[in-house]
C-alpha cells in the first residue's frame, strides 16, 4: 500500500504579513519499496512535503493518495490510524519520550497499536537488537548518545512494521560515523523488508544512499533523477 501519488500540491504559510509558498504545484509518484531523498536548501519545502505525505499537515489544494487511500478524504482519526499502522516517522530531533526507557519508547507505540504485552516486549527487544542497541534496552534517552537515540527513534518507527518511513533530516544531529550507521540501517530495512523510505536532507552524503533523488527549491520540484547509490560518500 506504500505507493504514493501526489498531484498539484500547494501550501502557503503566512508569517508576519508575508505569504510563503512552501509547496507550489508539486506532483510526484513514489513506488513501493523506493528509497527516495528529497534534497534542497532550507525553506525549499522538503519538510512540508513530508508532513503532507504523512497526513500531518493538510495542503491548501491538490491530492495525495497512499495506496488506495486518499488523504484528503480521511478524517483526523483515520489519518492518525494510517500513521499508526502504515507510516513510520523519524525526526531530526529524535523526539523520544524522555521518561521511558529505549524498550518502553518502542513498546509504547506498539501498545497503542494494540499489540499484546508479551509479544510487545519480545518485538521491542528484537527490533532494538536489529538497530544495534542490544543491551541498552533499559536505558533512558538521556543515558544514550545522539546516534543511539536516533536508532531508538528508528526502532520505534519500524517496530510497527510500516510500509513507509518518512525521515526528516534524520542525520542532522549525528556525527559522520553515526550517520553512516543509520543510513546503512535504512538501506538494510529497505532492501530486506521492502520498506519505502522518503528522506528529506540537505546532506550530500545522505543523498548518496538514495536510488532516487528529488531536488526542491521554493516549493517546487526542480530535479528528479534515478541514481546508483554511492554510499561510500559518508
Amino acid at each position: 500500500m506504500s505507493d504514493i501519488r501526489c498531484r498539484n500540491l500547494c501550501k502557503t504559510f503566512h508569517q508576519g504579513g508575508e505569504t510563503i509558498t512552501a509547496l507550489d504545484q508539486v506532483s510526484l509518484d513514489i513506488g513501493e519499496g523506493a528509497f527516495v531523498c528529497l534534497s534542497g536548501p532550507s525553506g525549499s519545502g522538503k519538510t512540508t512535503l513530508l508532513n503532507a505525505l504523512g497526513g500531518l499537515d493538510t495542503p491548501d489544494s491538490g491530492t495525495i493518495a497512499i495506496g488506495e487511500q486518499r488523504l484528503e478524504h480521511l478524517s483526523r482519526r483515520q489519518r492518525a490510524d494510517l500513521r499508526l499502522h502504515h507510516i513510520g516517522f523519524v525526526f531530526q530531533a529524535y523526539n523520544l519520550i524522555t521518561v521511558l526507557s529505549a524498550r518502553e519508547n518502542v513498546e509504547f507505540i506498539m501498545q497503542v497499536q494494540g499489540v499484546p504485552a508479551k509479544e510487545r516486549e519480545k518485538l521491542a527487544t528484537g527490533v532494538l537488537a536489529e538497530v544495534g542497541l542490544a543491551g541498552l534496552e533499559e536505558r533512558r534517552p538521556a543515558e544514550l548518545s545522539g546516534g543511539q537515540q536516533q536508532r531508538v527513534a528508528v526502532a520505534r518507527a519500524i517496530a510497527t512494521r510500516p510500509a513507509l518511513v518518512l525521515a526528516d533530516e534524520p542525520t542532522a544531529n549525528l556525527d559522520s560515523r553515526s550517520a553512516a550507521r543509520l543510513m546503512d540501517l535504512f538501506v538494510t530495512l529497505n532492501r530486506e523488508r521492502g520498506v519505502t523510505f522518503v528522506i528529506s536532507t540537505h546532506d550530500a552524503r545522505v543523498m548518496g544512499y538514495a536510488r532516487r533523488l528529488i531536488g526542491m527549491r521554493d516549493g517546487r520540484i526542480v530535479s528528479d533523477q534515478e541514481q546508483q547509490p554511492h554510499a561510500m560518500a559518508i
Binding site: 500531518l56 482519526r77 492518525a80 499508526l84 523526539n95
Partner: peptide, 12 residues
C-alpha cells in the same frame, strides 16, 4: 512538543 510527536506517530 511531545504531544505533537505522539500525534505524529499516530496516537489519537
Amino acid at each position: 512538543r511531545e504531544f505533537g510527536v505522539m500525534l505524529a506517530l499516530g496516537m489519537s
